[in-house]
């Protein structure tokens, strides 16, 4: 189980998450954080994580500088709040942030439970009818139209990047290359539907190419093809190298 000890930042959703985990691990009071020790441990994580998402890294480094600032303020003479006459704890703001964040983290795990059930419920898709009632006061904004359009395009995995020029490219595929791609995919998955195969590049050129590749592979006897009824999804089964116990 040594692998668990490998320092990795990716399993934390952010610097606050990492701090909370250090506080929990050290079993210290969140209202009296031993800043010096926690900062040291925090920095170990930063140093150990040399290869990862640069944007995420920046956010971890910002927190590191906050910790160091607090640590240095702890060493200075105590500041006094002029209104209340009480000592100012340099850790106060960080503690407030940690508590606020930890609440949302707790709520997040509650939501994860709700999601568990939610994803197991299905409803019929509304494909035959349009609502006839309540279209009278329809107020459309350009944002709503853009959103509707993006939703349609998202289904086909095409994104509209805001303000980016559209590039029209002709794509060319060779059937040979597509066959070897498909073999690689099928070797792993054994069974794929036509929709799954084309979902990565839903363009006409790719669909045509991959369709030819499927026909070619069928001719070579590497796959079987089945379809439950007309227009339903086509399933491609790989029949080559089935030595692993199938």
């Amino acid at each position: 189980m040594n692998e668990e000890n490998i320092l990795t930042l990716e399993k934390f959703s952010g610097p606050l998450d990492l701090l909370l985990s250090l506080i929990a691990k050290n079993e210290v009071d969140i209202f009296d954080i031993p800043i010096s020790e926690i900062t040291k441990q925090y920095m170990n994580y930063i140093y150990a994580a040399n290869s990862f998402n640069i944007e995420l890294a920046a956010e971890f480094v910002v927190m590191a500088s906050t910790l160091i600032e607090i640590k240095s303020r702890m060493m200075l003479p105590k500041e006094i709040d002029e209104e209340t006459g009480e000592e100012i704890d340099p850790r106060e703001e960080l503690v407030a942030r940690l508590i606020e964040y930890s609440q949302f983290k707790a709520i997040a795990s509650h939501l994860a439970k709700a999601e568990g059930d939610y994803s197991l419920r299905f409803s019929r898709e509304q494909d035959y009818f349009e609502d006839i009632v309540d279209n009278t006061n329809l107020q459309l904004t350009s944002e709503m139209i853009l959103k509707a359009m993006s939703k349609v395009l998202l289904k086909r995995k095409i994104r509209i990047e805001e303000n980016s020029p559209m590039l029209m490219e002709t794509e060319e595929y060779s059937v040979e290359v597509l066959i070897s791609d498909l073999q690689a995919k099928l070797r792993e998955k054994r069974r794929l539907t036509f929709d799954e195969i084309i979902s990565s590049h839903p363009t006409r050129a790719y669909m045509t190419g991959i369709f030819l590749a499927i026909l070619e592979m069928y001719k070579m006897g590497e796959i079987t093809i089945s379809q439950e009824y007309s227009y339903s999804d086509i399933t491609v089964n790989y029949t080559k190298d089935t030595q692993n116990g199938q």
């Binding site: 959703s13 944007e55 956010e59 927190m63 942030r97 949302f104 997040a108 939501l111």
Partner: peptide
């Protein structure tokens, strides 16, 4: 986890801005 935390913040602080979400989470 990131999406769930974001959803939690939107649920309990709505209407909420993106910058407020990022302030609470400490990440973009």
């Amino acid at each position: 986890q990131a999406a769930l935390e974001t959803l939690a913040i939107v649920a309990y602080r709505q209407p909420v801005t993106r910058s407020e979400i990022e302030r609470i989470r400490g990440v973009q």
